[in-house]
Simulated assay, not measured.
Amino acid sequence: MENSQKLAGKIALVTGGNSGIGLATAQRFVAEGAFVFITGRRQAELDAAVQSLGNQAFGIQGDVSKLADLDRAIAVIKEQKGRLDVLFANAGIAEFAPLDAVTEAQYDRQFDINVKGLFFTVQKALPLLPDGAAIILMASIVGIKGFEANSVYSATKAAIRSFARTLTSDLKARRIRVNAISPGPIETPGLNGILDTPEQVAQFKAQMVSAVPLGRVGDADEIAKAVVFLASDDSSFVTGAELFVDGGMAQV
């Protein structure tokens, strides 16, 4: 991994940083010179992730949909480092179901983690964010697309896109930049975990690939590199934006 140190001396938080895009981004942040706090719900996975990241990372077990867990995470960061220069609100889940099969539990789970959890992660981090800090919100191309059996998940991601706009306005006096990143289909444990059988996963990926102009599923590190751009001074005049990293899937 090239060593450009775009985040030298920065303190970062990646929620849901124990796997997939979150872990890939934490790896990039460390490589670019940042100290990274990661959160995750599963302790064993969190420990393994921290071990892979090395001594420039620290894991905090917690669920973003539980505000007490968020308070605890922010308290740990305040005690250890005293500030937070970069926040990547990445934690999220996807559950697909046709309209007539969506349950209240599925609805609540996705909105609690993807929307409520993300919003209060940002709110509770604010006291630690210096003026000029960077916030990146994990959205998705589903926020502007109408895929079948995606109603609730897509609505959560559309809400996140909206937050990138409104929070930019709320925080403009402090020059805190807020941007959303919207991946297309990416090879992650999350993608493989939302379908029941390997055959279904293969079929789903084949469908996705056929709709991507670049002709393939993306890699988590390709998202991570784009997050580094939004976290660093390379994007110093970018705020309120949605950066699509989707192989063209939602663009043509």
Rank of each mutant, 00 (worst) to 15 (best):
G132W: 14
D131C: 10
T239V: 15
K145F: 08
Q56P: 11
L171S: 07
M1N: 12
N90T: 10
R177C: 10
Y107R: 03
V252D: 08
T25Y: 06
L214N: 03
G92A: 11
A133H: 10
V122C: 04
K205D: 12
K116A: 09
I11V: 15
T103F: 10
V227Y: 02
K81A: 04
G215E: 13
A155W: 06
F237H: 14
D234C: 06
G22Y: 03
M138Y: 09
D221N: 15
T156I: 09
M138H: 15
A24Q: 00
L46R: 00
L118E: 15
Q27Y: 09
A159L: 11
Q27H: 15
A164V: 10
G184K: 01
R177Q: 11
Q5G: 05
N192F: 12
E32A: 05
Q27W: 10
G247A: 15
R28I: 12
L67F: 09
A24W: 00
E32W: 01
S232G: 06
I60E: 01
Q251N: 02
L84D: 03
G17A: 07
G62Y: 06
K124L: 13
E148C: 11
F96A: 10
N179P: 05
F111Q: 06
S65Q: 02
K172F: 05
L87C: 02
K6A: 01
V201R: 03
L67M: 01
E104I: 08
V201L: 11
A97Q: 15
N150D: 14
E199H: 07
S210V: 03
A206V: 13
Q251I: 14
F58H: 07
A226N: 03
Q61S: 04
R83A: 14
V14Q: 03
A173D: 12
K124Q: 15
R41K: 13
G132E: 13
I21V: 11
G16V: 03
G184F: 02
Q200P: 11
G59I: 04
K205M: 14
Q110G: 13
